[in-house]
Amino acid sequence: MNLLAFAEGPALVTSLSVMIIGLAWRLVAIFRHPTQRNLSEPRSTATIAGAVRCIFTRMVPHQEFRSSTKLSSTNGYAYHVGLAVVVFGYLPHIDFLKRVVGISWPALPNVVIYLAAGLTIISLLLAIMLRLSDPVLQLLSNFDDYFSWFVTMFPVATGMVVLGAIGGHYPPNDPSAHDLAVAIHLLSVELLFLWLPFGKLAHAALVFVSRSAMGADFARKGSRI
């Protein structure tokens, strides 16, 4: 078994399994706790609506906080959107997903992908620069913050290497000539899958849990969500 076959086979299955089981375990660790019965007279019983509303309202800071959070919020959006565009809009990724899960969709033009990749790289670099230079972020940061940044940036970097190797030609003239670069790229993504449930990247799932918990709680009191 060559490296690409390993990356496309057992490594992919293992990393995805770890990610799914790990995330499930993380959610179990929350949901194993009982819901606490609240006997106070609610101001509103629309707690489910509050939970849903909080998921959406916290996507953008409240007006009063926008000026102080402008850079971190905008930058956060830049790499989240940039990554999503590259991961789900780039033709080779779509082809790969089609092979693995059997579904596909139209790809975005390469120029959009290149712009999104550029935006992602710049915003991820800005994110780490902020983390290293801002006194608050310096204080809060630990191994998880830096390693999570690394496993996010690494697939982007290896993806750029693949792009350089194929010279922008897809499908490449001689796919086997680029097997190593593609394998490393795939393994770098699998590293992200492996780490995701253990650190802050789990916010991909947890964000819905914590926001909805707050939304339900605050809605009951009639507090601003």
């Binding site: 706790h33 819901t35 606490q36 940061s141 802050k200 947890l206 918990a213």
Partner: peptide, 20 residues
Amino acid sequence: GRTAAAYMESCVHCGQCAQA
């Protein structure tokens, strides 16, 4: 409870709370 457990699991160290 479940709510407190969700809060404990969710911080991403963005530091925005300092500004508030």
